[in-house]
Protein backbone atom coordinates (compact mmCIF):
# COMPACT_ATOMS: atom_id res chain seq x y z
CA UNK A 1 0.00 0.00 0.00
CA UNK A 2 1.59 3.28 -1.06
CA UNK A 3 0.24 6.62 -0.01
CA UNK A 4 0.57 9.47 -2.49
CA UNK A 5 2.67 12.49 -1.54
CA UNK A 6 -0.42 14.65 -1.82
CA UNK A 7 -2.19 12.51 0.74
CA UNK A 8 0.87 12.50 3.01
CA UNK A 9 1.04 16.30 2.81
CA UNK A 10 -2.66 16.60 3.58
CA UNK A 11 -2.28 14.47 6.73
CA UNK A 12 0.82 16.39 7.88
CA UNK A 13 -0.95 19.74 7.43
CA UNK A 14 -3.99 18.44 9.30
CA UNK A 15 -1.86 17.10 12.19
CA UNK A 16 -0.16 20.48 12.54
CA UNK A 17 -3.46 22.36 12.41
CA UNK A 18 -4.93 20.13 15.14
CA UNK A 19 -2.08 20.89 17.54
CA UNK A 20 -0.53 24.12 18.80
CA UNK A 21 2.62 24.88 16.80
CA UNK A 22 5.10 24.74 19.67
CA UNK A 23 8.02 22.33 20.18
CA UNK A 24 6.15 20.36 22.87
CA UNK A 25 3.51 19.46 20.30
CA UNK A 26 5.99 17.20 18.50
CA UNK A 27 4.81 13.92 20.06
CA UNK A 28 1.07 14.59 19.56
CA UNK A 29 1.77 15.64 15.95
CA UNK A 30 3.82 12.51 15.27
CA UNK A 31 1.10 10.35 16.81
CA UNK A 32 -1.55 12.04 14.66
CA UNK A 33 0.49 11.43 11.50
CA UNK A 34 1.27 7.83 12.36
CA UNK A 35 -2.33 7.09 13.40
CA UNK A 36 -3.38 8.17 9.91
CA UNK A 37 -0.52 6.83 7.76
CA UNK A 38 0.92 4.00 9.92
CA UNK A 39 4.39 5.59 9.67
CA UNK A 40 6.17 8.95 9.54
CA UNK A 41 7.00 9.79 5.91
CA UNK A 42 10.18 11.59 4.88
CA UNK A 43 8.03 14.51 3.81
CA UNK A 44 7.15 15.22 7.45
CA UNK A 45 10.67 16.21 8.50
CA UNK A 46 10.88 19.60 6.80
CA UNK A 47 7.24 20.44 7.42
CA UNK A 48 7.47 19.71 11.15
CA UNK A 49 10.86 21.37 11.52
CA UNK A 50 9.49 24.51 9.95
CA UNK A 51 6.17 24.56 11.81
CA UNK A 52 7.48 23.64 15.27
CA UNK A 53 10.73 25.60 15.11
CA UNK A 54 12.91 22.50 15.45
CA UNK A 55 15.79 21.05 13.46
CA UNK A 56 15.46 17.90 11.37
CA UNK A 57 17.89 16.32 13.82
CA UNK A 58 15.58 17.12 16.74
CA UNK A 59 12.75 15.39 14.95
CA UNK A 60 14.81 12.37 13.95
CA UNK A 61 16.12 12.15 17.53
CA UNK A 62 12.60 11.93 18.92
CA UNK A 63 11.34 9.47 16.30
CA UNK A 64 14.29 7.15 16.85
CA UNK A 65 14.02 7.30 20.64
CA UNK A 66 10.43 6.10 20.91
CA UNK A 67 9.81 2.54 19.78
CA UNK A 68 6.25 3.34 18.62
CA UNK A 69 7.35 5.55 15.73
CA UNK A 70 8.50 4.04 12.47
CA UNK A 71 9.92 5.53 9.29
CA UNK A 72 8.76 2.70 6.99
CA UNK A 73 5.19 1.55 6.39
CA UNK A 74 4.49 -1.65 8.34
CA UNK A 75 3.12 -4.82 6.79
CA UNK A 76 -0.61 -5.21 6.19
CA UNK A 77 -0.88 -6.85 9.61
CA UNK A 78 0.92 -5.85 12.79
CA UNK A 79 1.67 -8.52 15.37
CA UNK A 80 3.02 -7.31 18.70
CA UNK A 81 4.12 -10.04 21.04
CA UNK A 82 4.65 -9.39 24.75
CA UNK A 83 8.13 -10.44 25.89
CA UNK A 84 7.82 -9.38 29.55
CA UNK A 85 8.22 -11.62 32.59
CA UNK A 86 4.58 -12.50 33.33
CA UNK A 87 4.11 -13.70 29.77
CA UNK A 88 7.41 -15.61 29.88
CA UNK A 89 6.19 -17.36 33.03
CA UNK A 90 3.21 -18.67 31.04
CA UNK A 91 5.04 -19.90 27.96
CA UNK A 92 5.72 -16.63 26.14
CA UNK A 93 9.09 -17.88 24.93
CA UNK A 94 7.60 -20.85 23.11
CA UNK A 95 5.12 -18.50 21.42
CA UNK A 96 8.05 -16.35 20.37
CA UNK A 97 9.80 -19.35 18.85
CA UNK A 98 6.66 -20.49 17.03
CA UNK A 99 5.95 -17.02 15.63
CA UNK A 100 9.54 -16.75 14.38
CA UNK A 101 9.31 -20.20 12.81
CA UNK A 102 6.07 -19.53 10.99
CA UNK A 103 6.80 -16.00 9.86
CA UNK A 104 10.48 -16.72 9.15
CA UNK A 105 11.42 -13.29 10.51
CA UNK A 106 12.90 -11.77 13.64
CA UNK A 107 11.45 -8.94 15.74
CA UNK A 108 11.32 -5.48 14.11
CA UNK A 109 11.00 -7.06 10.68
CA UNK A 110 8.33 -7.47 8.00
CA UNK A 111 7.81 -10.59 5.93
CA UNK A 112 9.17 -10.34 2.37
CA UNK A 113 5.70 -10.14 0.89
CA UNK A 114 4.81 -7.19 3.15
CA UNK A 115 2.12 -9.29 4.83
CA UNK A 116 3.06 -9.15 8.54
CA UNK A 117 5.26 -6.96 10.72
CA UNK A 118 6.47 -8.46 14.00
CA UNK A 119 7.30 -6.22 16.95
CA UNK A 120 8.15 -6.95 20.56
CA UNK A 121 6.25 -5.19 23.32
CA UNK A 122 7.11 -5.07 27.00
CA UNK A 123 3.82 -5.45 28.83
CA UNK A 124 0.31 -4.90 27.56
CA UNK A 125 -1.25 -4.80 31.03
CA UNK A 126 -2.97 -8.15 30.52
CA UNK A 127 -0.49 -9.97 32.78
CA UNK A 128 -3.16 -11.90 34.68
CA UNK A 129 -4.29 -13.30 31.31
CA UNK A 130 -0.79 -14.13 30.07
CA UNK A 131 0.66 -14.70 27.57
CA UNK A 132 -0.67 -11.76 25.59
CA UNK A 133 -0.26 -10.23 22.16
CA UNK A 134 -1.98 -7.68 19.97
CA UNK A 135 -2.91 -8.37 16.37
CA UNK A 136 -3.84 -5.27 14.37
CA UNK A 137 -4.57 -3.47 17.61
CA UNK A 138 -6.80 -6.16 19.16
CA UNK A 139 -5.61 -7.56 22.46
CA UNK A 140 -5.56 -11.35 22.95
CA UNK A 141 -4.87 -13.05 26.28
CA UNK A 142 -4.21 -16.65 27.41
CA UNK A 143 -2.66 -17.32 24.00
CA UNK A 144 -1.39 -20.89 23.93
CA UNK A 145 0.18 -22.52 20.88
CA UNK A 146 -3.23 -23.71 19.64
CA UNK A 147 -4.77 -20.25 19.90
CA UNK A 148 -1.70 -18.73 18.22
CA UNK A 149 -2.04 -21.22 15.42
CA UNK A 150 -5.66 -20.16 14.83
CA UNK A 151 -4.67 -16.49 14.72
CA UNK A 152 -1.82 -17.12 12.28
CA UNK A 153 -4.03 -19.38 10.14
CA UNK A 154 -6.50 -16.51 9.85
CA UNK A 155 -3.68 -14.45 8.35
CA UNK A 156 -3.00 -17.34 5.94
CA UNK A 157 0.53 -17.80 7.22
CA UNK A 158 1.89 -21.16 5.99
CA UNK A 159 2.26 -23.76 8.69
Amino acid sequence: MTISENEQQRVIDWALRENACTPEALLPVLHAIQDALQYIPELAFDALAHALNLSRADIFGVISFYSDFRLQPPGRHLLRLCRAEACQAMGGRSLEAEVRRRLQIEFHATTDDGHVTLEPVYCLGACACAPALTLDGSLHGRVDLARLSVLLDQLEIPR
Binding site: E85, C123, A126
Partner: peptide, 11 residues
Amino acid sequence: DEGDSGTFADR
Protein backbone atom coordinates in the same frame (compact mmCIF):
# COMPACT_ATOMS: atom_id res chain seq x y z
CA ASP B 1 2.98 5.19 32.09
CA GLU B 2 2.46 1.86 33.85
CA GLY B 3 5.35 0.05 32.20
CA ASP B 4 6.30 -2.51 34.84
CA SER B 5 5.52 -5.97 33.62
CA GLY B 6 3.11 -7.72 35.94
CA THR B 7 1.25 -4.53 36.82
CA PHE B 8 -2.17 -3.50 35.60
CA ALA B 9 -3.78 -1.61 38.51
CA ASP B 10 -3.52 1.77 36.77
CA ARG B 11 -5.09 0.37 33.63
